[in-house]
Design a protein around this nucleic acid. Structure first.
Ligand code: MN
Ligand code: MN
Ligand code: MN
Ligand code: MN
Lengths: 222, 222
DNA sequence: ATTTATTTTTAGACAAGACTAAAATGTTTT
DNA sequence: AAAACATTTTAGTCTTGTCTAAAAATAAAT
């Protein structure tokens, strides 16, 4: 169909816009974009003009930006590639879930439709990445799913770990040490009203998890 | 140890210098480098200055260039990565040997020592890529091997296909159609003095191969 | 040993992507 | 409604990597 040449930088910005709009639906502001990208607001403005020229975003000065249909398609494809590569790194190469993001950040920019689809096939068409995030299919369709923050569980309720909201290596490593990988089961035993910390049972072990952990850990209630 | 930041462009030039010097040992001239890279001589000169500043090459104006110890190490590591990824693409993703070069050209630039070594491990430490080219080990050591061009075989001699000198998709596809993949056995039945073409037997089939094919196909005599 | 031809380098331009500092616009407060 | 504050854009600069055209150096030919 059309070639649609995009640079890695453009792709990263598109993905950043997508991610911000995912959390906070609506228009994305320049400062938020610059913060997400770790660049200056001036650089973000420069890029927004470029993306607007290429019709990848709808951008109005001082008002903010949204992805165009094409921009959304590209961002989705990029996320698909990122997450498929993460699955590869964990499932096939044996990396831990806290080690793969930076590699995937590079691998997501490898060009070639057929590569992505063959990789997807090789991996058995996974629908979630190692952090529990959904992988859109080749048509860009997303899998919808009900997740609850651990924080909302009351004593007596049990859940299966389905994802994280904080992807930082330190958090991921901490969870791994606690035995809280994807699919792990846990039960809330007590909740302290004062600081929202919770005593939980993970297998045989009992631990106290802070509000911060409760906020950043997603479970499916069982 | 040391970080040694290099861009993809620098890496590609280093690899090009390595490849030219591999065929034609000695100093590499600017025009040859530009031709290999598909750029102008002016661009090659610019890059040579940059590589020289970074101590990756020994460069003397108008005289030519050679890789430094560090430059050689980087070029070798790049070739290692390129060929490991090619093995991955063929062995794991099921691509044909004529389809993988462009992908590997991108994948070779993915940064991260551990990734390369885990990939190598996942692939079972292959010593040759899908085209029969040797893969240097993690220390940069090359496997030496005796190969003969099919052209030098006399009638009655048999050989096993071990590699190609021409890596173009058209040649690789042609070989595949003939059943001449790596490891295939063939026997030279006749050779025409006039044009050096050869009648060969491949399994049950008999075919005539031109001098050009004889020149570009490597075998191990058995 | 000049002239001629080839190779290589320099000079000047350009695009992408980043920066800082200053100007402009938008939003809140008083 | 002004003033103060926050956000965003513009202006000017830098680096990388490319180009073309012109100048300089080297090599070949007469
Ligand atoms: Mn990730
Ligand atoms: Mn990226
Ligand atoms: Mn390359
Ligand atoms: Mn190869």
């Amino acid at each position: 169909m059309n070639a649609l040449l995009t640079t890695s930088a453009e792709e990263n910005y598109l993905k950043a816009i997508f991610k911000i709009a995912e959390k906070e639906p609506g228009v994305v502001l320049t400062n938020a974009l610059a913060a997400e990208m770790g660049t200056s607001a001036a650089s973000a403005t420069d890029m927004l003009k470029r993306l607007s020229d290429k019709q990848l975003v709808a951008y109005e000065k001082y008002r903010g930006v949204t992805l165009s249909e094409t921009g959304n398609r590209l961002a989705t494809a990029l996320i698909r590639k990122h997450r498929l590569w993460e699955v590869f790194l964990v499932d096939k190469l044996g990396f831990a879930w806290d080690e793969v993001h930076d590699f995937a950040e590079q691998l997501e920019h490898i060009q070639g439709e057929t590569l992505t689809e063959r990789l997807d096939n090789f991996l058995g068409h996974p629908r979630f990445d190692p952090h529990g995030d959904p992988i859109p299919d080749a048509q860009g369709k997303w899998m919808r799913r009900t997740q609850t923050r651990l924080l909302t569980l009351s004593p007596g309720q049990r859940g299966i770990v389905t994802g994280v909201d904080d992807h930082s290596p330190t958090f991921l490593q901490y969870l791994a040490e606690l035995g809280l990988s994807l699919g792990a089961e846990l039960e809330v035993l007590e909740r302290t009203a004062y600081d929202q910390s919770a005593k939980v049972r993970i297998g045989e072990r009992e631990t106290v998890l802070s509000e911060k952990v409760g906020q950043n850990l997603f479970v499916r209630i069982i």
